[in-house]
């Protein structure tokens, strides 16, 4: 399993990287942690003639608060997300999710930007970003633009990124203090993609759901934002009957492929089970 030949570039700034990507067009490919791209290159399913390694670009790293948002550089690793005190206190679902991504070695190297940008429906972070209402900072020929995570995913490996674009950062509005959250992932083993997974962030007020957002992983060609299901839950006490209706609404938007994890119908049902469990756990963590 040997990749084809390529030329290697290691720019030190975003502008330099964009220049290289613009110069090489379809022959160029940005590489972040590499754990999706390098195996594809070894199988020769990807054959970039020019590899643009983003590892030395300081501007793509770091986690910082910006008003009511947290901005995370695209090259921030899962390991760094797990270790961030800021995230643990403000958006703890990120740590919970990161710990369920791949395995320890991959988490040292795998980046948030790579996870959300490559469009693999098996990746965990995209559904969480949709759930959180995150926005992606994208640099391209025409400068920076911002794309909502909920608008970003178009199909398996198809996203709003255009040739030559670079996803530079992820901007996440901080959920209110006291929010409840959970990322429930059913998988066969460590390192596996989800059979189905559900991300929930909610707030409670007087025993009722004040706000709720739901993301689903790996049960369609893209990650899913289950808007209708969340609407059903708003204002409810998460009683069994309402949860059942919401789960049915969430299941209705899934369109999973059959694979070794199970037939499509099973995976749809598992999305429902994961959502049910995520709701219960999120509720138990919420204050108010």
């Amino acid at each position: 399993m040997i990749p084809g030949s390529f030329e290697y570039h290691r720019p030190s700034s975003v502008q330099e990287a964009l220049g290289l990507l613009a110069k090489w067009g379809d022959d160029g490919r940005a590489i972040a942690g590499g754990h999706s791209l390098i195996p594809m290159m070894k199988l020769r399913l990807a054959k970039p003639a020019h590899l643009v390694d983003l590892r030395d670009i300081a501007d793509l790293k770091g986690i910082r608060a910006d008003g009511n948002d947290i901005v995370i550089g695209a090259m921030t690793t899962q390991y760094e997300l797990i270790g961030s005190n800021l995230l643990v206190s403000k958006i703890p679902i990120l740590r919970e999710t990161s710990l369920q991504v791949a395995d320890p070695q991959v988490r040292y190297v795998g980046t948030l930007g790579g996870n959300v940008a490559n469009g693999d429906p098996g990746n965990d972070m995209p559904a969480v970003m949709m759930c959180l209402g995150a926005t992606y900072h994208v640099m391209g020929k025409a400068g920076e633009r911002r794309v909502a995570a909920r608008e970003f995913y178009q199909g398996a490996y198809f996203t709003a990124l255009e040739a030559g674009d670079l996803l530079t950062a992820v901007r996440i509005p901080m959920p209110p203090a006291g929010h409840g959250y959970a990322y429930e992932k059913l998988k066969r083993k460590i390192g596996d993609y989800a059979t189905a997974a559900a991300a929930v962030v909610l707030t409670m007020s007087g025993g009722k759901v004040a706000s709720c957002s739901i993301g689903l992983t790996n049960v369609a060609e893209t990650p899913l934002w289950a808007e209708e299901a969340a609407k059903i839950l708003n204002g409810s006490s998460l009683d069994a009957a309402t949860v059942k209706r919401a789960v049915a609404a969430a299941e209705a938007i899934t369109a999973p492929a059959a694979d070794a994890r199970g037939p499509a119908a099973y995976r749809t049902k598992m999305a429902g089970v994961m959502l049910t469990r995520a709701l219960a756990r999120a509720k138990s963590k919420a204050h108010g």
């Binding site: 993609y193 694979d259 070794a260």
Partner: peptide, 23 residues
Amino acid sequence: HYDPDGNVTTASFMDYFLPTAVE
């Protein structure tokens, strides 16, 4: 596992179940 067209669908460590220390 083979699909009806004769494709072997479980020929990687992603799909061939080798348990880790956790499982």
